[in-house]
């Protein structure tokens, strides 16, 4: 058996031991996972971002404009010195500002207008038959939106509308929950398959 399979099998069992209760073996594996994951992210960030976008073009390609993000990045380290800690707000301001600027049109288009246009479908088809699914979508959208409208008290007709919205929300939460459980379950089946076939060799 390959060394990699043995290590992966032991670590999988170490994590699964949490099903019994919190124990030192699980904790050891948990800390190892955190350490290795952070090390992995560090290496990938260094290689894919800092080397390819900053250091190679700056020092080998002589793109001197890249001194700007380099200085901004270095200012982040000012956080560790109390006297100059406020300087780290400058790169944060750059990131927050440019992120917000990008987010406005993206959110307006992707999250709002596209969702609205996808919901507006013909409610009666060409032969005069009502489009039940389309009616359900429009009703669900309007009632759920009215549930999230808090500038008016949920009373009277508006309150009843919002109440219908909660049913649509419950359907959404239920389906999302079902999908989440099933996706986790399929991951678990994958791990069990690995343990039984590759590691313990109890099944083909």
């Amino acid at each position: 058996m390959e060394m990699g399979t043995i290590i992966a099998g032991i670590l999988t069992l170490a994590i699964l031991s949490f099903l019994y209760r919190d124990n030192p073996i699980y904790k050891m594996a948990e800390y190892l996972l955190i350490g290795v994951s952070i090390g992995y992210v560090l290496v990938i960030t260094w290689t894919n971002t800092l080397m390819s976008l900053l250091f190679v073009p700056l020092f080998a390609g002589s793109d001197l404009w890249l001194i700007i993000p380099l200085i901004l990045g270095l200012l982040m380290w000012a956080r560790f010195h109390k006297n100059i800690a406020s300087l780290s707000r400058i790169p944060i301001g750059f990131m927050i500002g440019s992120g917000a600027g990008v987010a406005i049109p993206a959110m307006l288009y992707g999250r709002t207008l596209r969702q609205l246009s996808a919901s507006v479908t013909p409610l009666v088809d060409s032969s005069g038959v009502p489009n039940i699914s389309g009616i359900v979508v429009i009703a669900g959208l309007l009632t759920t939106l009215s549930y999230f409208y808090f500038s008016r008290e949920h009373k009277g007709h508006f309150g009843r509308l919002a109440k219908v919205g909660t049913f649509f929300l419950m359907v959404f939460f239920g389906t999302t929950f079902g999908y989440t459980v099933m996706s986790r379950m399929s991951t678990f089946i994958g791990r069990m398959e690995f343990l039984l076939t590759d590691f313990l060799r109890l099944a083909n």
């Binding site: 987010a103 406005i104 959110m107 307006l108 992707g110 999250r111 709002t112 969702q115 609205l116 996808a118 919901s119 359900v136 979508v137 429009i138 009703a139 669900g140 959208l141 759920t144 939106l145 549930y147 999230f148 919205g165 649509f168 929300l169 359907v171 959404f172 239920g174 389906t175 999302t176």
Partner: peptide, 18 residues
């Protein structure tokens, strides 16, 4: 029905983020 509620939530998120 589920998609309708999902869209309403996404519209809310979109307007909130904006």
């Amino acid at each position: 029905p589920s998609m309708a509620a999902r869209r309403a939530i996404l519209i809310g998120i979109g307007l909130g983020s904006l």
